[in-house]
Every structure is written in C-alpha cells, then in structure tokens.
C-alpha cells in the first residue's frame, strides 16, 4: 500500500515556503556573525603590529617618546574586574535566589522591576553614583570605586539570569529533596542552584564580559594612571580607559597602541570566559544535563 500523495501543487508551495524560511534563517545567522568577525578582524589588522613583549610588560612612556606599553592597565583591569565580580556575583546570585524561591510577592515584584530598571541605567550614571558614594567620601579616585561601579552594573544581569535558571529547575527535583528531609535552604543551595549552575555561570560570564569593556563608569572612579599601582585605594589604569585616552590623543604611536589595547582587551575577555567554561564543564558528568 502506498502512502496517499498530496496534490502536486500543495507540495510545490510547501517546498518553496520551506526553502524560503530556511534561507532567511541561515542568512540572518550569517549577518549576525559578520559584525563580530569584522570588528575582530579589523582590530587584529590594526593592533597586532603594536602587540609585543614591551607592550605587555612596560608602563606607558611620556608623550612623544616611542614605545612603552599597557602592562599597568592590563593588571588594573584585572583588579577592577575582580572587585566588581566579588561584589556583583554574590549579590546578584543572592537576589536571584530570593526572586525565584521566595519572591512571589509584592516585594519580589519591586526587586524585579528595580533590577530591570537598573539594567537600563546608562553606565555613566552608575559611574556618577559610585563617584558620589565612594570617591567623594574617600577624597580620592581608586580601583575600589571603579570595581563598585562595575559590580553594581553586574548585579541585575546576574540576578535575573539566576532567577530564570532556578525557575527552570522542575519542582519535582525540589520535592525529591524535601522528601529526603533536606531543609529548604539546603535544597536551594545544594540542589536547585546546583542543577541550574550551568545557566547561572553563563549569566555571570555575560555580566562580566559586558562590564569588562566599560569605560564611562571608570572615568571618575578608577580614573586611570600612567604608572604602576596595585593598591585598591589609589587611582588605577584600566585598558578601556587607556584605549580612550590614547585614541583621542594627537600622537600616531598612541593611536597604534590604542588599537593594540583594544585587541588585548577583547582577547582577555574571550580568554576569561573560555577559561571559566572549560573549568566548570570539567566537573560535568556523562549524560548529565
């Protein structure tokens, strides 16, 4: 017995629609890739020539002198991002847990709304807030204040990602834990959060990558520095600031270094995200989800 065949014409129209939709999806996917690849390629072309050992190990030379590097800015970015992560990740995950597990009420709605608004606040405004909250009372610019500004920016992204991921954990998993006599707080931390960990880590990395390149909030918090500084309470160089300063300078050599700085910044962000992915996926089990 043969399968009933559809009229020839319907088959044609369906195949045509199918081909059209597939072509559109593929084209859209390629179009999304183009800007990213173009930016990266352009950065490599413009910047790779100035990336050398001196660039990675030396501090900036005075204006007019050729050479020097951004070692202090690379380290400074690392310090500021470390402070930001120490503030943004625990607070973000904590409020995400509250929203998902306890926040089905008015207060939860308020927190959720606030987080969404905070996510849309221009980064320079966050910088001003950190300036008036940290820099003014301390009376000097510092890596710490830069970290606070970026940390605040991380919180809403991390919180909402954590909430979404925890809500995706099926309730039967929580019930299984309650049924074993595991208290609710333990269930949340060791069962729900652990089950959602892959998504929560992705959220943290997104927030991290987003703030890693921020310049505006650092202008009047970390401020920048032409010299080495490893202290949290002193003005500190950051790659994004250094790129900004060099790019608007009148010196050709600084322009080249700005390109190199931007390239290094992107490579470091990609490297950090990849490193976290690899370390966290190592513990994954066969057949786990």
């Amino acid at each position: 017995m043969s399968a009933p065949s559809a009229p020839q014409q319907v088959g044609l129209i369906r195949r045509f629609t199918n081909a059209g939709a597939t072509t559109f999806a593929v084209a859209a996917a390629i179009l999304v890739l183009v800007p990213l690849l173009a930016i990266f390629a352009y950065l490599v072309i413009k910047g790779i020539g100035s990336v050398n050992w001196a660039f990675l190990t030396q501090t900036p030379k005075p204006p007019g002198e050729v050479g020097g590097g951004m070692a202090n800015a690379i380290v400074g970015t690392g310090i500021i991002l470390a402070v930001a992560s120490v503030i943004g990740v625990p607070l973000g995950i904590g409020s995400g847990i509250y929203l998902a597990e306890y926040g089905r009420n008015r207060f939860g709605d308020l927190v959720r709304f606030t987080a969404d608004v905070l996510n849309g606040v221009p980064s320079i405004v966050i910088g001003i807030a950190a300036y008036s909250l940290v820099v003014v009372p301390q009376k000097h610019f510092s890596a710490f204040s830069g970290g606070v500004a970026l940390g605040i920016m991380m919180i809403p992204t991390v919180a909402r990602a954590t909430e979404e991921m925890l809500l995706m954990v099926p309730n039967v998993i929580r019930e299984a834990a309650y049924g074993l006599g595991i208290p609710k707080w333990r269930t949340t931390l060791s069962i729900s959060l652990r089950t959602a960990s892959a998504g929560v880590i992705t959220g943290c990395m997104l927030a991290f990558a987003r703030v890693a390149g921020e310049t505006a909030p650092l202008l009047f918090t970390a401020f920048g520095n032409q010299f080495w500084n490893l202290k949290l309470n002193q003005p500190t160089a950051a790659l994004s600031l250094q790129v900004f300063t060099y790019a608007i300078s009148p010196y050709d050599d600084w322009h080249k270094q700005a390109w190199a700085g931007a390239l290094i910044l992107i490579v470091l962000i990609v490297g950090a995200v990849a490193a976290v992915r690899i370390t966290t996926s190592r513990g994954m089990l066969k057949g786990g989800s």
Partner: peptide, 16 residues
C-alpha cells in the same frame, strides 16, 4: 520527612 521516605510518580533523580 527524614523518617518517612517518599518515591514520586515521575523518576526525579538530581540531574547534575
């Protein structure tokens, strides 16, 4: 609940 174990309708092992 520690003293009264429970098995549910759908198998629900901890996936991770």
């Amino acid at each position: 609940r520690r003293r009264i174990g429970m098995v549910f309708q759908k198998p629900n092992p901890f996936p991770t």
